[in-house]
Design a protein around this nucleic acid. Structure first.
Ligand SMILES: [Mn+2]
Ligand SMILES: [Mn+2]
Ligand SMILES: [Mn+2]
Ligand SMILES: [Mn+2]
Lengths: 218, 218
DNA sequence: TAAAATAGTTAGTCTTATCTAACAAATATT
DNA sequence: AATATTTGTTAGATAAGACTAACTATTTTA
């Protein structure tokens, strides 16, 4: 049996490494920061996960998921994103409310539940934040995505995903009228700091480059 | 915050006392047996629940839920039965599979989730085992129910609920062709031990009085 | 009513997941 | 190369929730 805490470590490692191909290893401090626990706590847990052959690492070395650990992590990510989709599509949850509840639901253990939920939702490919949902074999189809910063002035694009899923980010997005599938027109861009003036449903806002980098568009 | 373990104790106390009006108190051993833990464990937990004013008891005395404890327990029961209904109605779970998964889902903490799930299901009144689902105010409508043992020979009745929810009971029921809404005809009854011969979809079986007592019919 | 049986409590132990404080190793900077 | 900084580890502590073994209180029964 793998505990909830263990599942969270595996998922965190997956997000910090496998999810972005450039980076294949993580450090103790990095993991600790991500999970909001202390490095000592991570160190203890790593010993347990190593024992279970879910991560590979040696003293003072870097941390990697094993094949087994990666598979497990992907399964948790799959559940997380399916539940988010369920909450958004079926239970009228908003964009910024789904994550917190999915953090709990992702730990429910029932193979049948996941597969039936997937079917019930019509085998969705992306979650409400536009992230890909792994299929039942653990395969993930990443779409090559452009961010708002790639769109030239004058052009119009459509929001298909967000990079950040924090409530503060999502609430800000909602505040300026953004939602999945919103049409965004680029009015102007400051060379100085990359901030952009955009128009959504005839409403203009100016947002920072940092914000723009978190909007995936098509 | 109330932990999962604490929720399970409250729910157990509710089932052992409030749910059947005759009995208003429970004992340490009784609770321990029900929860499949040792009496010493229950004793420790009772101290904590008393501290939180969720149960009332004194050393060597009987155990009762406080008003607050009862309300909390009902909320957990509500969640349990709503999830069972979801699994049965929407995800093609069978009668005997829902309980185990609902035991996990009942502990998910989100007011909005419960209320939206209730709405999504059309505010169901009973779960797949025929048990009443508390409404959002915590009100429970108990139906006066007859069991198979009350039906005279020759009569036909309809299964509307079951008393026992164990897998062994439900699987036996499925085996002889029983499901919610099954039509049951009473062919004969033995005076000796109360066993009854019944017919379901032209298939005859003989079941014990004990089994018959667990079938609520209309 | 004394003894036996049942019910409930206490003390001490274990595991999991966390922490703090102190230490050690690796890396970067002067 | 010496020093400083960053990163990672260890030891010891704590809290929750479970256990066993031994004890105490209450209830039943002969
Ligand atoms: Mn999420
Ligand atoms: Mn989680
Ligand atoms: Mn149930
Ligand atoms: Mn439970």
């Amino acid at each position: 049996m793998i505990s909830q805490a263990e599942e969270n470590y595996l998922k965190a490692l997956f997000h910090l490494t496998n999810e972005t191909e450039e980076k294949v290893e993580a450090g103790t401090n990095e993991l600790a920061f991500y999970l909001e626990v202390k490095p000592a706590t991570v160190n203890d847990m790593l010993k347990k996960l190593k024992e279970k052959e879910l991560v590979s690492y040696k003293k003072y070395g870097k941390i990697m998921l094993t094949q087994q650990g990666r598979e497990y992590a992907v399964e948790v990510v799959r559940k997380h994103r399916l539940w988010e989709t369920f909450l958004y599509e079926k239970l009228e949850f908003s964009w910024d409310e789904v994550h917190e509840v999915a953090e709990q639901l992702e730990h429910i253990k029932s193979k049948k539940l996941v597969e039936q939920l997937d079917r019930f939702l019509g085998f969705p490919k992306i979650d409400p934040h536009g992230d890909p949902i792994p299929n039942s074999k653990g395969e993930i189809k990443y779409l090559k995505r452009k961010t708002l910063t790639d769109i030239p002035v004058g052009a119009v694009c459509k929001l298909v995903a967000v990079k950040d899923s924090s409530a503060s980010f999502l609430q800000y997005a909602v505040q300026i009228g953004l939602g999945l599938s919103s049409k965004i027109k680029i009015i102007s861009r400051q060379e100085f700091d990359g901030s952009v003036e955009i128009e959504i449903d005839n409403k203009r806002s100016t947002v920072s480059q940092k914000f723009a980098e978190n909007l995936f568009v098509l």
